[in-house]
Design a protein around this nucleic acid. Structure first.
Length: 266
DNA sequence: CTGGGGACGGGGCCC
DNA sequence: GGGGCCCCGTCCCCA
């Protein structure tokens, strides 16, 4: 399940999740209320007209080769992440049983940590373990000691989900998906990266900077515009190998195949 | 059931 | 090395 921290949302919580009680620590990024429009607008590109030719691929992907979504691998991996993240962050806001809230950001790391990147990385997630002992224990959790050994050439392991990364930067980026330092000041929802928060804030402001060059529709999310552009194309991106029918989204193709392709075009 | 939109996440690339 | 951005992809909901 790629949406790492997504648990089925109720219809109500989908629009107005209550994260207000989650954050007792200062997040790295917040958007003030009312929305920091000046900053947002400065960061958001002007209405964009995408290159139609580039956005309307005529090539039909082989449904078997296309998007190596690795749904099984990623899903199973992330399925492992969820309980750990919840456990580590002592999520308490489980009202209504939706459980869709992201884990609470950790409290600020102890100031006594060294300033090396590895140590700060450890510090970043360290506070998730309340009352933990000294750092060495954490090193074991994060597998960082092995990474510093040129001979063993070990990967950097995430202490939350044990996922391996070959570079420290990649691991740090990944850990943000656990600590979720970017918090929406409106609804309290937390995100791993500032631009994800930016996109989320658009759901509050209603801003839709991505316009379809073929119709009047506009979107807050570029990916959604890309998916929309498929609807303007006669030949869709994803093709069923059995019946040659094409679909605008892989998920639709999957549904089609799972529901039992009849073998002939509809 | 199908198609489409909304929201969002992760990895990779570039500066 | 870090941040911004892009691309790809998924899940959920609704018409």
């Amino acid at each position: 399940m790629p949406r790492s921290f997504l648990v089925r949302k109720s219809a109500c919580s989908r629009r107005r999740p209550n994260y207000s009680e989650l954050h007792d620590s200062s997040p790295e990024f917040t958007f003030q209320q009312p929305y920091d429009q000046a900053h947002l607008l400065a960061a958001i590109p002007p209405p964009e007209v995408l290159n139609p030719t580039a956005s309307l691929p005529t090539l039909i992907w082989d449904s078997l080769l296309a998007p190596q979504a690795q749904p099984v691998g990623r899903a199973s991996l992330l399925a492992q992440e969820i309980p750990k993240a919840v456990e580590l962050t002592s999520l308490s806001d489980e009202d209504s049983g939706k459980g869709s809230q992201p884990p609470s950001p950790p409290s600020p790391a102890p100031s006594s940590f060294s300033s090396t990147s590895a140590s700060s990385l450890e510090a970043e997630g360290y506070a998730a373990f309340s009352g933990l002992g000294p750092l060495p224990g954490l090193k074991q959790l994060a597998g960082l000691s092995g990474a510093k050994d040129p001979q063993s050439r070990k990967a950097f392991n995430c202490k939350y989900c044990n996922k391996e990364y070959i570079s420290l930067g990649a691991l740090k980026m990944h850990i943000r998906s656990h600590t979720l330092p970017c918090v929406c000041s409106t609804c309290g929802k937390a995100f791993s990266r500032p631009w994800l928060l930016q996109g989320h804030v658009r759901t509050h402001t209603g801003e839709k900077p991505f316009s379809c060059p073929h119709c009047s529709r506009a979107f807050a999310d570029r990916s959604n515009l890309r998916a929309h552009l498929q609807t303007h194309s006669d030949v869709k991106k994803y093709q069923c190998k059995t019946c040659s029918r094409t679909f605008s989204r892989m998920s639709l193709l999957h549904k089609h195949q799972e529901s039992g392709c009849s073998g002939g075009p509809r």
